[in-house]
Amino acid sequence: MAIFVNADTKVIVQGLTGGQGKYHGLRNQAYGTQVVGGVTPGKGGTDVEGIPVFNSVAEAVAATGATASFIAVPPKAASAAILEAAAAGIGFIVCITEGIPAQDEAKVYNTLVRDYPNTRLLGPNCPGIISPGKCNIGITAGEIAELPSASGPNVGIVSRSGTLTYQALYELKQRGIGVSTCVGIGGDPVPGTNFIDCLKEFQADPETHAIIMIGEIGGSAEEEAAEFIKANVTKPMSAYIAGVTAPEGKKMGHAGAITSGGKGTAQGKMDALRAAGVKVGLNPTEAGDLMAEIVATLK
């Protein structure tokens, strides 16, 4: 088991003929992911190192039976690409594109909710998802993810920040702790998939025994997650919130990472998570140490 993606997931890459799409699409394939096709309008009938390219997502789905899409196209084209995938019946979309206007994101999100309730969007501006040993969609370097152990315990990871997602994987790898699935939800203001969506899945996944959550300043997603954890999550958790030292009112790189009027601060988020029973580390390594302690009690 794993969440959202597994060994059976068939993936197409929208933008496979572009630089990013090709590099990461081929790496995902090399990892063992079933990359069954690519989509680039006007380049249908060609191939990228043996992977067939189609003109549209609908054609690609008809020919390959793809169930997931990896979107690696520029910000201007990303919204249309997401909606095209949803319209073609893709159930799971990973969009790594950074820099999509917030207005477009809000429109796409609400269109998906209304017209394509069976499609889940991960991202945009996210590193993707990896179920180690089974499926890797996105830009994560697969070798830093520890394979889950058959006997457990294994840890699920959910993170708002790209590079901190890798850091979390790395911290667990250093300690030899298996990972069931690692989900990077992205740091944009309107993520298609949020902490709670992932926590719900991890709670239900028999292969996941504990959960690490990596948050950051800005918004209230961590506080909402804390409420959800208190009421619904029985699996032990550790967490880290980036941005304890961030100055107020400045956007720290991510459009979503800004504190204002004393809201969205790291301290407030850490307090909320602690109150929900989560062990909170002051840096990623500490969160890893806390998880190692948790895992030791589960063995």
Binding site: S161, T163, A242, G243, M252, N283
Partner: peptide
């Protein structure tokens, strides 16, 4: 200097700690 906003923020945090 870090790559990724989250890691950059985290780097500030760790330096501070």
């Amino acid at each position: 200097i870090a790559n990724g906003a989250g890691l950059a923020m985290s780097t500030l945090d760790v330096v501070n700690q």
